[in-house]
Structures are given as structure tokens and as C-alpha cells.
Design a protein around this nucleic acid. Structure first.
Length: 584
RNA sequence: GGAGGCGUGGUGUAGCGGUUUAGCAUACAUGCCUGUCACGCAUGAGAUCGCGGGUUCGAAUCCCGUCGCCUCCGCCA
């Protein structure tokens, strides 16, 4: 039907007779000559219609409208002098059409596809997703996604991994996200669950001796949505036997470099910097630090302790004194600084500020501190003349997370974040357990099969909260791309962890019995990672939401305007499933 | 579960208590135009201002409720 794609044509094809197919992107009718920008997946080509080149074709061209599907044949010609369009990759040529067929007319689209309008109401875009996806930006997103996915397969294949599918219908497991549930028709009153991740299956595959597994795995979590969270999403799921943390990190670093090269042609630096969990929290107030800019948090407790300023002394007593330096901030206007203080308040921290100006140190609290203290402070925070220091005092956790959130927001609003950078890092040595306020007990920070660090094992009974896990997160530009761990493969260690989690032998058997059984038949040491493919691609294409890299995503309230899902079921269907509705 | 923002012709928006017959841009329709590329010019059609209730002599505008969309907190091992 076609001989060539629009975007492939250039000067070297001049003089050739070609046939192209696609959609009318734009029509420019000059009366005596008509121009059509024809769009297909590969790009845009200008068609030109002269009445003398083909009277019938010209007559049909007059009737063309946006998004009509057409086929056009003619001779590719070099554009006249001064008529080149540098904005088009095909801008040096055009197709002089003598034969035109309308393959399908189209209704006027509900929004403009030709312009780069991301400002169209998103639910309208989703309702007409098949049109939204025609837009070149969206096509590129989906294409980059495919290339990245293919790169994953190519790389892991070359490293000896096997892609193995695991069930979508499986059983609900305790801990973690709420799972989506599917009623069983054959066994009424019983329910399947869709996997939050293939975690247990991939571990079983290690026991089964496959040694290196991966899967582009769809996962389901029935939790509230966000710009970077959808109910169903895709993980690059990896598991390896007879490996240490180091082996997993190296593999992932190699894979990331390969993906960026293959999908974007970009080179990224490996190995990625590593921070311990403690370092990440104390320097960036976050376990997913954005390393595209500096502005590290510094502890100032010792510099300000006993300085005689009540707020600081009380803060030092409750936790500590922390702050960070905004380079060049000393020259900010008073109202701008007040705005920053207000912003800090929204993040739950009360801040004092110190402007290190050429004429001296300016601060609303300077009068409470001796000049020697102020100089000590300047030295301790590493500020130069012209910088602004923000300080807060109080509990360590809320101070650091508050400063971390403030740092991130200021980094963006002050233009310190370079959008074209890709700054990967590993965060390692996470705590094995964290305290759950809701459940009033320790829960697994990663998951219950995460191995403690060997050297911390003696602490597990006395001080479980101090035990570090062999667990690692991959972070890119402040976004958590994924996390993984080396798993427990020894029965005695697993039992100790379950004990801390409050899982008795009976309960553990009931919930994870199949995995524990398997572990008794020769489980190799193993570990792995799961990476969010949607988030990775989002960052690769510069999108601000994963919805823009998913062909058919859901709205923030978890519905799909295109299909109208979720939908109701008929009485008959409910009855067949043994279900009765009880809703207000 | 909570907080905030938005909702006005197809689309994007202005108007925020009365000279508004709801403005503008774009899309759409008709006509003119032989070198445009966000073509241009002219004419025209197109909106009970998300929905429901209230306040008022008067509501797109103020209040309450509700629905939808977006962002964030909680939640997401």
C-alpha cells in the first residue's frame, strides 16, 4: 500500500516515485496550490498539490480535513530555493502528488493533535486516548518505552538470564500493599489476588535452580494513586542465585547504562555513587536523594549548643540543630526570605536564617548569639559570603525530613535542578525493621525475606531496630526506581525475623508455608531487585507523570474514561460468583 | 481518610455581584487566494458558565452541597 515512511524521505530520494500513507496533520489551502502535512509514525512530510499535476488529486485534496487517512503517490522533489523548512527533518523535500486516495475520512477531533498541547484536560485525553496517542510526543514516549524494554531483554539475555512468567491469579499475602482481589467461581467464597509483585515466585524459581531470572512483570496494588503510581504498573523483576549485593548492583548498573545507550543514545556514568541510608537521611533528609544539586544538610548541634538562645538549646535537647546553605541567598529580599520561612513551616519546621553579607551577618536571631558564635556557625555550615543559612532545631527525624523537603522544593524553584541530568545513586544499609505506628509493632522495611547483615545478626533479639538489612534502593533524580535485597536462605535466620515481626510458626506456615517448605529443599543463597519500568521511562522522556508513558492509564481516582472501567456487574454474574452487594 | 487547586462555545482561556446581547484565541463552516509550513483575508455558526440548592431586586461571579479532573499528606513490604 505504501512504499516508504514519511520521515525517511530526504534529498537522496529526490526524483523517486513514492507512495506514502498517513493522517492529515495540517492543511494549507492557497486556492491555486494546496499543502498537506502528512503524518505517520516516522514523522511529517509536506505534500504539495498543483492542479496541473493531477486535476483529480487536486480536487480531492480540496476536501481533505484534519486526521483524514490518505494515501498519496507522486514524485519526491527538492523544495524551491528559500522554501526549506528547517523545523522538519524532511524539510528539504516535498512530495508532488498526482494520485490521492482518501482511505477514511475523520470527524473533527475533540482536541488539536497537531500542536503540542499537553494542556488539554487530561480526562478528555484519556477518553480519546487513541487520538492522544497519535501525537508525536506520545508516540515517542511509547517508542522509548519499547526500546527500553527491549534493551532490558537484550542485556539480561546476554548475561544469561531467563525470562519466566509467573501467575497473575495467585494468593493474597499479608504485609505490604492491599492487593486486588478476584472472586473464584469454582470455589465460591474464595478469592484470588493479583500479585503486588512476583516476589515469592521468583524466589521459588531460585530454589528451582534457574539461577538467573527476570520478567517484565505487571504488578497490582490497590492503593491510592499519584503522578508516579498506578494501580497496575510494570516492574523489571530480577533474581539471581549465588550472588552478593555487589553482584546485583553491578548487573543493574550495566543494565541501566545499556538501556540509556540503546534507547536514548546517552552514556551514563557507572558505577553509581552509594550512600548508606543514614547518610542519605542526614545529608538530604530523604531516602531517595536528588543528587542533581548540592545544598546538603549539615548538623549544627555542637556549634550552637549552649549558645544561650532558648529555641536552639531546647532543640538541641530534643534532637539536634540542622540546616543547609542556599548559595547566593544572602542577597534575597526580606520578603523572599520570609516566603522561604513560610514554605519551611508548611513542611513542618520552624526555621531561623542567617545571611552572610559583606557588611556582616544579618539574622533576626543574631542578637541572641555572641559574635564568636556567629563566626563559628558560618564556619560549621561551610557558608561563603553571599550565602544564606537556614536552621531548624528539634527532633532529628522531623527536622531532617522537613529540611529535605524544603531543600527539594527550593532546588526546583531556585532553578538549581538541571533537567537534563540523570543522577543515579544507590542507597544501601537500610534498617531491617521499622516501627509501625498503626500496628504498634515492628514491620519489615523491605519485606520479610530480606536478609539481615551478618555482622548485625547478634543484635536481632536485643535491639532489632538497629539491625541493618542487605537491602538497596536505586534512586534516580530523587525518584525511587526500585529496591531489592539479598534474601534469607537459612531457616534459623528466617525464624528469628518472623519472631521479631510477631509471626508465630503457625501463622508463618499458614501464610508463607509454600515458600518455607521450599527453603527446606536446598535453597541457594539468592537476591535480586525490582525496578519500576514506568518511572524509569518517565524520567528518560522527561515526563512528569507515568500516565504519559503508559498507553492506557487510569485517572487519579482509579477509573478509565476510555472504557468506563470499573463497571458494575449484572445480578446473574454476581450470583454465579456467590457475591451479594452491600453498599450505601 | 485528609488538604489544596481547577471546572465558562469543540479546545485553551478572559470575565469574579449590575453598560455582558458572556470577551479573546484557536478549531469548525462558507468564500477568496499558486509557495505555505501555527499560511493569510472576509463572512458565519457555535456557551442555558459541571450539576443541585441557597443568599440577593439581580449570580458565570457570593455561600452550601455534589460530581469530575489534577497535585500533595496518609497509604504504597
Amino acid at each position: 500500500m505504501r512504499t516508504v515512511f514519511c520521515g525517511e524521505l530526504g534529498l537522496k530520494h529526490v526524483g523517486e516515485r513514492v507512495t506514502v500513507c498517513g493522517w492529515v496533520n495540517r492543511r494549507r489551502d492557497h486556492g491555486g496550490v494546496i499543502f498537506i502535512d502528512l503524518r505517520d509514525r516516522s514523522g511529517i512530510l509536506q505534500l504539495v498539490f498543483h492542479p496541473d499535476a493531477g486535476r483529480e488529486a487536486f480536487r480531492i485534496a480540496d476536501s481533505l480535513r484534519s486526521e483524514f487517512v490518505i494515501r498519496a503517490s507522486g514524485t519526491l522533489v527538492k523544495r524551491p530555493e528559500g522554501r526549506v523548512n528547517p523545523k522538519l527533518s524532511t524539510g528539504e523535500v516535498e512530495l508532488a502528488v498526482d494520485d490521492l486516495t482518501v482511505l477514511n475520512p475523520a470527524k473533527t477531533p475533540p482536541f488539536d493533535l497537531a500542536e503540542r498541547v499537553t494542556d488539554v484536560d487530561e480526562s478528555l485525553r484519556l477518553k480519546y486516548r487513541f487520538l492522544d496517542l497519535r501525537r508525536p510526543e506520545m508516540q515517542r514516549n511509547i517508542i522509548v518505552r519499547y526500546k527500553a524494554t527491549k534493551a532490558v531483554r537484550d542485556f539480561l539475555d546476554s548475561e544469561g538470564f531467563l525470562e519466566i512468567e509467573t501467575p497473575m491469579l495467585t494468593r493474597s499475602t499479608p504485609e505490604g500493599a492491599r492487593d486486588y482481589v478476584v472472586p473464584s467461581r469454582l470455589e465460591k467464597g474464595r478469592f484470588w489476588a493479583l500479585p503486588q509483585s512476583p516476589q515469592l515466585f521468583k524466589q521459588l524459581l531460585m530454589v528451582a535452580g534457574f539461577e538467573r531470572y527476570f520478567q517484565i512483570a505487571r504488578c497490582f496494588r490497590d492503593e491510592d494513586l499519584r503522578a508516579d503510581r498506578q494501580p497496575d504498573f510494570t516492574q523489571i523483576d530480577i533474581e539471581m542465585s549465588f550472588v552478593t549485593q555487589e553482584d546485583v548492583l553491578k548487573t543493574v548498573e550495566g543494565m541501566m547504562a545499556y538501556i540509556y545507550k540503546a534507547a536514548l543514545g546517552k552514556t551514563i556514568q557507572t558505577p553509581f555513587p552509594r550512600l548508606t541510608y543514614q547518610e542519605a537521611i542526614s545529608s538530604y533528609g530523604s531516602d531517595k536523594p536528588d543528587l542533581r544539586f548540592d545544598m546538603k544538610i549539615v548538623e549544627l548541634t555542637e556549634s550552637l549548643r549552649g549558645a544561650g538562645f532558648k529555641a536552639f538549646d531546647a532543640g538541641a535537647e530534643r534532637g539536634g540543630i540542622y540546616g543547609f546553605v542556599i548559595p547566593g541567598g544572602a542577597l534575597f529580599s526580606r520578603s523572599r526570605i520570609d516566603g522561604i520561612v513560610e514554605l519551611a513551616k508548611q513542611h513542618g519546621i520552624i526555621t531561623a536564617w542567617f545571611a552572610f553579607r559583606s557588611e556582616g551577618i544579618v539574622s533576626p536571631v543574631a542578637k541572641f548569639l555572641a559574635p564568636s558564635r556567629l563566626n563559628l556557625l558560618k564556619e560549621a555550615c561551610g557558608a561563603k559570603e553571599g550565602d544564606l543559612l537556614l536552621v531548624t532545631a528539634g527532633s532529628k527525624q522531623s527536622s531532617l525530613t522537613g529540611l529535605g523537603a524544603l531543600r527539594l522544593e527550593l532546588g526546583k524553584t531556585l532553578g538549581m535542578v538541571r533537567e537534563d541530568l540523570f543522577k543515579f545513586c544507590w542507597v544501601v544499609d537500610f534498617p531491617l525493621f521499622e516501627y509501625s505506628e498503626e500496628e504498634k509493632r515492628l514491620v519489615a522495611m523491605h519485606h520479610p525475606f530480606t536478609s539481615p547483615k551478618e555482622e548485625d545478626l547478634p543484635l536481632i533479639e536485643e535491639r532489632p531496630e538497629a539491625v541493618r538489612a542487605i537491602c538497596y534502593d536505586l534512586v534516580l533524580n530523587g525518584v525511587e526506581l526500585g529496591s531489592g535485597s539479598i534474601r534469607i536462605h537459612r531457616r534459623d535466620v528466617q525464624e528469628k525475623v518472623f519472631k521479631v515481626l510477631g509471626l508465630g510458626p503457625e501463622e508463618a506456615k499458614e501464610k508463607f508455608g509454600f515458600l518455607l517448605d521450599a527453603f527446606e529443599y536446598g535453597a541457594p543463597p539468592h537476591g535480586g531487585i525490582a525496578l519500576g519500568l514506568d518511572r524509569l521511562v518517565m524520567l528518560m522522556v522527561g515526563a512528569t507523570t507515568i500516565r504519559d508513558v503508559i498507553a492506557f492509564p487510569k485517572t487519579a481516582s482509579g477509573s478509565d474514561p476510555l472504557t468506563g472501567a470499573p463497571a458494575t456487574l449484572s445480578e446473574e454474574r454476581l450470583k454465579e460468583l456467590g457475591l451479594r452487594l452491600d453498599i450505601q
